[in-house]
């Protein structure tokens, strides 16, 4: 049964990319365990505004776990202690009366902090622009049923395509590696006949961009897979390695 709890939130405050940043601890009273984590932050912000202070800045949008906008490193976990969900789906019933909850931004060289808990994830867009697509123009494409695709392949492609681009994989990784994100897109398109035509070019271009943007080298710790809110498998990383190595050896 949901109760009201009193908690403290220890939040990272940083005024801008160049500011040094520090933690502030705020007490919050009578938070319903039925509220979501972000609603708890809404209440905190309401409280701060009423005290004439600046509210905590954090990214969020759809609040139903699909847009990938919300982030937050909560008590040692990207997206908090619950598995298979995003921060916006995390509820306060995961916390107890008297808890101090530490809330930090994603930390990685690839995701510089903009303000407080908000980070810049445009690096992911740049990787996508390097090759995360099938080169087709609008119109002039064959009938949708012209190429049958084995159901198993379509399902595996869908598993990979479920990635929401939130960056939890990078945030969880001690190497700041973006391999899970890149491998999900490369896998999706490598598994489908439409994407196979450009598979070599795509794997090389996306990996090159990922490296250029300062993401780390994957050492297969598997932390990304554990924290991924969409349970994307690291076997996609094996596939990316395969795709990339094949492409390089073919050159």
């Amino acid at each position: 049964m949901d109760k009201d709890i009193n908690i403290k939130v220890k939040v990272w405050r940083q005024n801008g990319p160049k500011d040094k940043g520090h933690f502030e601890t705020y007490p919050l009273e009578n938070i319903s365990q039925g509220s979501s984590f972000l609603e708890m932050l809404d209440i905190l912000n309401e409280q701060l505004i009423n005290e004439g202070k600046e509210p905590v800045v954090f990214d969020h949008d759809c609040r139903e776990g699909i847009c990938g906008m919300c982030s937050l490193y909560i008590n040692g976990h990207p997206h908090g202690p619950d598995q298979g969900i995003t921060t916006c789906q995390l509820h306060m019933r995961r916390f107890n009366d008297g808890d101090t909850i530490t809330v930090e931004p994603w930390r990685s060289a690839g995701f510089p902090i903009i303000k407080d808990l908000m980070v810049d994830r445009t690096a992911f867009d740049k990787i996508m622009q390097a090759g995360g697509y099938v080169s087709v123009n609008t119109g002039g494409v064959p009938d949708a049923n012209a190429i049958p695709i084995p159901r198993h392949d379509a399902e595996m492609a869908m598993d990979a395509a479920a990635c929401i681009g939130c960056g939890a994989c990078v945030a969880a990784c001690k190497n700041g590696s973006a391999m899970l994100f890149v491998s999900a897109k490369v896998s999706q398109l490598a598994l489908l006949p439409q994407g196979r035509v450009e598979r070599k070019q795509r794997a090389k271009a996306m990996v090159a961009k990922m490296d250029e943007l300062g993401f780390g080298n994957c050492t297969n710790t598997g932390a990304c897979e554990v924290e991924c809110p969409k349970n994307i498998s690291i076997t996609n990383i094996a596939r990316l390695n395969r795709e990339f190595l094949k492409a390089k050896f073919a050159d």
Binding site: V134, V136, V141, P142, A144, I149, R151, A154, L189
Partner: peptide
């Protein structure tokens, strides 16, 4: 168009 882009529709 979507199939050509690699959208993994159910099959």
């Amino acid at each position: 168009q979507c199939v050509a882009q690699g959208v993994p529709f159910a099959r």
